[in-house]
Design a protein around this nucleic acid. Structure first.
Lengths: 125, 125
DNA sequence: AGGCGCGGTTACTTCAACGTCACCGCCCAG
DNA sequence: CTGGGCGGTGACGTTGAAGTAACCGCGCCT
């Protein structure tokens, strides 16, 4: 079972799920919310570079997909928090963050090599 | 060390890395190439719905970032294959695929609940 | 020689995502 | 009752990513 679904087929709903979770903002939001429930402004400050609109849109999409929810907390403020489903997403997404941060130098080096190789091409051997 | 880099800062190069790897086409290509080196057309058929242009662009970006490379094989045909760096990416991305495929029903149910709740709003209590 | 499939590239278009900015109601402090 | 911060929403414009389709050289088959 479950192998009735495959992300390799464009029409399979699992493809849409993959597209939603394989996304930098999704990853950052889920990782931030794993620590604790957060308010809109806290997320806005936490995910540097995101605009209010994109944050609002992303939060609504994640809420629709059942990964987070939005409830008024004991102090009277609304907060976003992971659902049970959202919590299962933390580990895989966290792994992406760790990968990205720990392989920066490798990637930067590879880009350098690629770009200078391309330059040498253009400048004739 | 390595915590000089953080994906939460917009200017940090690790953010660009995260954006590249947290991407459905990247994930699908890395997963397909994990089995074995593949030719352009094989990838094109393997990742249903991708166009030649997007595939070519994505492959060039991954090559530049040092995750794959492109070499002429023993049979005279070019093939794309994972580099050592690319191989380290397989496990985290594979986890996303597994998540997407195994939680399809949960996500679909959540969407249903969200959408019908929204309908009831619109239709007045 | 002619036609086909492969592995792209190019030019042009389209479309969805994102940015900008103004505005809103609510609550709290002064 | 005014001003500011919070938590958004909406209208609009821009950009960049993706789609479309035509074309290309190469090698293979016939």
């Amino acid at each position: 079972m479950t192998r009735e679904w495959t992300v390799f087929s464009a029409q399979c709903p699992s493809r849409q799920s993959l597209a939603r979770i394989a996304n930098k903002w999704t990853a950052m939001i889920i990782i931030l919310l794993h620590e604790q429930p957060l308010r809109f402004g806290e997320l806005h400050r936490g995910a540097d570079g995101i605009t209010k609109k994109v944050l609002a849109d992303t939060l609504r999409a994640l809420e629709r997909d059942g990964m987070i929810d939005h409830a008024t907390h004991s102090d009277g403020h609304g907060r976003y928090e992971l659902t049970e489903l959202g919590r299962t997403l933390h580990e895989p997404l966290r792994a992406l963050q760790v990968w990205a941060e720990s392989h920066v130098e490798d990637v930067l080096d590879a880009q350098d090599r690629y770009d200078t190789a391309a330059d040498e091409q253009t400048l004739g051997h």
